[in-house]
Simulated scan of single mutants.
Amino acid sequence: MHDLVIFDCDGVLVDSEPLSNQVMVANLARHGLSLTADECHRIFTGKTMPEVQDIARDLGADLPANWIAEFDAETDAHLRQGVPLVPGVLELLNLLDERGVPFCVASNGGPDKMRVTLGQNGLWDRFKDVMFSAYTLGVGKPDPTMFLTAVKHFGASRPVVIEDSASGVTAAIRANMRCLAYAPHGGGEKLADLGAEVFTDMAQVPGLLRI
């Protein structure tokens, strides 16, 4: 049995990505870069904010020096209006607790954002002390450092990662970890090609973990 489950946050624990994507589209349009929601999702999902900033500028956006702080503030304001948990996540976390399997979160997003999204759903207390972020570590996915740091913290030998982005899957594979990729709306072929085991419903995870 696995001795650590590492969750991504956005799109895996909380269904925040559609809203964040809408904020990104509107923000970049104000700064001279017009993208559709699908284009924005394809180009930026799974990237760190410095990477997003660099790519957006390369595509023609005229971003101010404080753009990351600006975007984070806009996103947090929208997220505070309400973001749901991914269906089945609460039941999965409760089952992991029952089986005594530790879990944590590892995200390219910042702790402040996770406090907003996890806090309003009652999960902050379950993750606040086992939170690994690109903002605090200084390096994000697809670099494997975040996952390796989490494993070292727990002293785990059989970790499993649950992700939904190409950068997250790549980081897990580079860390030589089993990766389950959540693709509820299709499009899991690319994640499977990267080495993940694709699933479409959180109710499938207990069977995949054999718990």
Rank of each mutant, 00 (worst) to 15 (best):
68 I>Q: 13
98 E>D: 14
204 Q>H: 09
150 A>Y: 06
47 K>L: 15
106 A>E: 03
180 L>F: 15
21 N>W: 00
196 A>E: 02
59 L>F: 10
120 Q>I: 14
183 A>G: 10
82 G>Y: 10
202 M>P: 01
144 P>F: 08
141 K>Y: 08
87 P>L: 08
75 T>F: 01
124 W>I: 03
79 L>T: 05
117 T>K: 07
179 C>H: 09
122 G>H: 12
1 M>F: 07
64 P>G: 04
137 L>F: 10
7 F>E: 04
71 F>P: 00
4 L>T: 01
72 D>Y: 09
132 F>K: 04
80 R>F: 01
117 T>S: 15
13 L>Q: 08
65 A>T: 13
84 P>L: 04
208 L>T: 00
87 P>G: 06
20 S>A: 15
171 A>M: 09
114 M>G: 01
39 E>F: 05
180 L>R: 04
149 T>Y: 05
78 H>S: 11
116 V>G: 03
72 D>P: 00
183 A>R: 14
206 P>K: 03
132 F>W: 08
88 G>Y: 02
3 D>Y: 11
165 S>D: 01
84 P>D: 14
79 L>P: 03
25 V>G: 04
192 A>I: 06
104 C>A: 11
19 L>T: 14
148 L>S: 06
195 G>A: 08
93 L>D: 02
6 I>C: 10
152 K>G: 09
18 P>G: 03
76 D>K: 13
64 P>W: 04
168 G>D: 05
134 A>E: 08
155 G>C: 06
81 Q>D: 13
47 K>I: 00
41 H>Q: 11
68 I>T: 13
159 P>D: 06
70 E>H: 13
43 I>M: 11
88 G>T: 01
41 H>D: 11
10 D>Y: 10
18 P>C: 04
182 Y>S: 06
116 V>W: 05
